Simulated scan of single mutants.
Amino acid sequence: MATAPEPTPRKQYRKYFIPLESNPDVFTELIHELGVSPTLCFQDVLSLDDEELLTFVPRPALALVLLFSSSSTYETHVAADEAARQGYTGSGDDEDVIWFKQTIYNACGLYGILHAVCNGDARKHIAPNSTLSNLLAKGVPLEPEARGRVLEASAELESAYRVVAQKGDTEPPENPEDVVDFHYVCFVKSHENNRLYELDGDKKGPIDRGAINEDQDMLSQAALEPIREYIDRENGRSINFSLIALVPAG
Rank of each mutant, 00 (worst) to 15 (best):
S47D: 14
W99V: 08
R85N: 10
H77K: 10
D49L: 03
A127Q: 15
L64S: 07
N129T: 08
I113A: 07
P128I: 07
D50L: 06
L64V: 00
A137I: 13
F42R: 06
L136R: 00
T131V: 15
S91Q: 15
A63S: 02
T89R: 15
G112L: 00
C108D: 09
S70M: 01
D93F: 05
S91V: 01
L135T: 10
A79E: 07
Q102P: 11
G120P: 09
E82A: 10
A80I: 11
N129F: 14
L53F: 09
L66V: 07
V45Q: 11
R123Q: 13
L53M: 12
F56G: 11
Q102F: 02
T89G: 02
P60Y: 03
L67I: 14
A84D: 14
C118E: 04
Q43K: 14
E52H: 07
L40W: 08
A83Y: 08
L53D: 02
A83E: 14
D94I: 13
A127W: 09
L62P: 06
L62T: 09
D44F: 09
V45E: 02
S133K: 03
T39A: 15
F68C: 13
R123T: 09
F100V: 13
C41A: 13
R123G: 09
T76K: 12
C118H: 10
E75L: 15
D49A: 14
A122C: 09
C118R: 05
V57T: 06
N119A: 01
Q102S: 15
N134W: 01
E75V: 10
V57M: 02
A79D: 13
N129M: 08
F56S: 14
L114M: 07
C118I: 11
K101C: 08
T55C: 06
Y105D: 05
N134I: 06
D50Y: 07
E51P: 04
D81T: 12
I104T: 03
A61H: 10
N106H: 03
I104M: 04
G109S: 08
K101N: 09
P58Q: 12
A79M: 02
T89W: 00
S71A: 12
T55M: 13
T73M: 10
